[in-house]
Design a protein around this nucleic acid. Structure first.
Lengths: 197, 197
DNA sequence: TCATTAAAGTGACCAGGGTCAATTTAGTTG
DNA sequence: CAACTAAATTGACCCTGGTCACTTTAATGA
């Protein structure tokens, strides 16, 4: 028979996440070591891996939560009234993801995966994101700001594609002589969303 | 003073690539171990890492060469005469990349990087690919099959974005109940390239 | 209260990529 | 040819993520 998860387990999990978060804040994602996490959390290594599938699984929880916060922000600002406004709404998320390759890689790997795990916040965030954008697009279609020959969901997925594209290119251009990802995104969004002239 | 690379070095490099290729053929990319490679090649581990920056660098040479072969094939078939024909031209490459996550990840990481390394075949292949598609698009624009309000290079980059998108989604959907990446790509290509109605 | 048993946690151990001081090989020069 | 030097290679070692047989903890129930 199975029993309820004990309070102790929840505390351990919370402690692990808290420590990880602190370490990421000071060292960045790329410098994070599992050993440091368990040392500072005062648990054994095996414990960490009984809570999270692997190191990525641990990070996914944090990153998923962070993305959720961006989505809250997006929703709070309401529907944009133009394509340019839509672009500006994307800026914070774009900056966040473009700020660290680990974040980008992880989002690309986990996003869209049919979340078999209970705690895949990150998968949930993916669908929520598409949903929010689709709602914006629908409004913009009614306002005549966006083409009407494609479904909002479909156009939203396209935005996702362009977002990933400009970030991928951004990481490849190691030299900072290039325009920001946001600037690179604008022409794509325009060409993708603008109604026929 | 610097000297010419010696014949021995070229032989070692060739041997490493040959062995890697053979192992990949039998085990797949994900099962490849550096230790197996050096064992079968009869060299020390350090030698491999003096030839290639890391395991990915080794794979990049093979994958870059493979992509180049697909591009040769694409060019040999000539310019497509419709958007659908263009889509079909992409099929072999798409299948290849969608066939193994390692390939996809590696291409995404290396592509577009301003190739500082001499042997970054993979970077070269990226630009060549865009060039080929741009040429196709230019022809299709003249034929009225493709929108004319965007530069061919720009539209080609968009194709790249959609290609990556459908493959990323493909990998996330572990269950094979989904349509092939090629089918998923069609609507995107149409919406992206079609001239205004 | 004490036996029972599932949940939670432990840490020695392994795997596999990557490093580097030391060694061998082979052009070059006097 | 012998001495010299740069190129090429070596393999012991390290790092770090991940595993698993075992111990500890704490609900449950007679």
């Amino acid at each position: 028979m199975s029993r309820q998860p004990q309070k102790r387990r929840l505390e351990t999990r919370a402690k692990l996440l808290e420590v990880t978060s602190a370490l990421v804040a000071s060292e960045g994602y790329s410098g994070l070591k599992v050993e440091d996490v368990v040392k500072r959390a005062g648990v054994a290594k095996g414990t960490l891996f009984s809570h999270f599938r692997d190191k990525d699984g641990l990070l996914a929880v944090l990153i998923g939560a962070e993305v959720m916060r961006f989505l809250d922000e997006m929703e709070a600002e309401g529907t944009p009234d133009s394509r340019e406004a839509l672009l500006q709404r994307l800026a914070p998320l774009l900056d966040y993801v473009a700020g660290d390759r680990v974040i980008f890689d992880l989002l690309l790997r986990y996003s869209g995966s049919t979340g078999t795990e209970t705690d895949e916040v990150i998968t949930e965030s993916f669908y929520r994101q598409i949903g929010i954008w689709a709602a914006w697009i629908e409004a913009l279609q009614k306002a005549g700001e966006v083409r009407r020959d494609c479904a909002p969901d479909f156009l939203a997925e396209g935005i996702q594609a362009f977002l990933n594209q400009v970030i991928a290119i951004w990481f490849c251009m190691s030299s900072p002589n290039t325009a920001t990802p946001l600037e690179a995104l604008r022409p794509f969004l325009d060409a993708w969303l603008a109604p026929p002239a």
